[in-house]
Structures are given as C-alpha cells and as structure tokens.
Amino acid sequence: MTLFTQTLSISLLLIVPMLALAQHDHHETHGSHSALDHPEAHMHHPAQEQPEQTDAEGPAEMTTTAEIEAALADGGKPVVAEVLGVVCDFCATAMNKIFGAREEVAAVYVDLDTKALNLVLRPEYDLDDSTIEMLAVQAGYRIAAIHRNPAIAAR
C-alpha cells in the first residue's frame, strides 16, 4: 500500500466518523458548531441557534483586571459571557481583538480558568445578546450564556 493510499485511508477513517458524530451532535446537542452552519445566521436568528442562552442575574462572577476596574469606576456596565471552546491563549487573543475593536467596549478580558469573556460596556452604549453572539462567532467561538449583572470578584 502506498503512502498516499495509507494517508487517504486514515484521513477518511478519521473524518467520516467525526462528521457522522457531528451530524448526531447537531440534532441532539448544542455542543457542536459547524462552519457550515453559516455563522452569519446568528445575527438574524440567535434564538434558534442559541437555545442555551440565558440573560439572567446568574451566578457568574466577573474577573477583574486593572483595566476592568477602571472601566467599572467610570460607570461602565459589566457583562460576563460563558464561552465554549476557549482552551488557549489564541482563543483569548481572538476574543480580545474582536471585542476590543468595538466602540461599545471599554474593557475586555478573557479568563481561561473560568472560560468567561468579561466585558465592561461604556455607560452610553450597549451590546445586545445577538451582537455578542455574532462577535464571538467572528472570533471563532460560541457563547453558552450571558450574565448582565455578574458579581464582581477580585482576580
């Protein structure tokens, strides 16, 4: 068997079960997300795509940094979003770049320990849930829940 044939065989053996699993996941869970799911759809139908979404004064705690504390002191509004798939610094960098570029955002910090995106919105602005979800998709990740009035915890 040539190396090409071996390579192709292993690739197919790897991909076919994963795609089958993905299809299964798509029907039964919300823990997977395909690039084929057309992320832009989140902008238009977030309720259909994000049934796990919550917008409650839940138990989430905001992780603070000097930048976040300063933004809160200026009257900023804290938001904590639980993010799926955040496992490395590239993830944090992506979220920081995408959210940090928004004029609504005064401070942003991704905490890998809590898997949370910590945002402080400028007092005169707001970001609705669907926009936060859409921005997370642009960063390559997915929001599991959004908490608008999180507890403030020292880092």
């Binding site: 997300h33 955040v86 599991a144």
Partner: peptide, 16 residues
C-alpha cells in the same frame, strides 16, 4: 483553508 467542522465544549475544542 476551510474550517469544515468545529466542536465546542466547556473544556475542549476540536476541529477539522
């Protein structure tokens, strides 16, 4: 390069 599939979990990520 095309991201064919990404799986998300609270503690993991997988991609093709």
């Amino acid at each position: 390069t095309y991201l064919l599939k990404r799986w998300f979990g609270r503690d993991y990520q997988a991609n093709i």
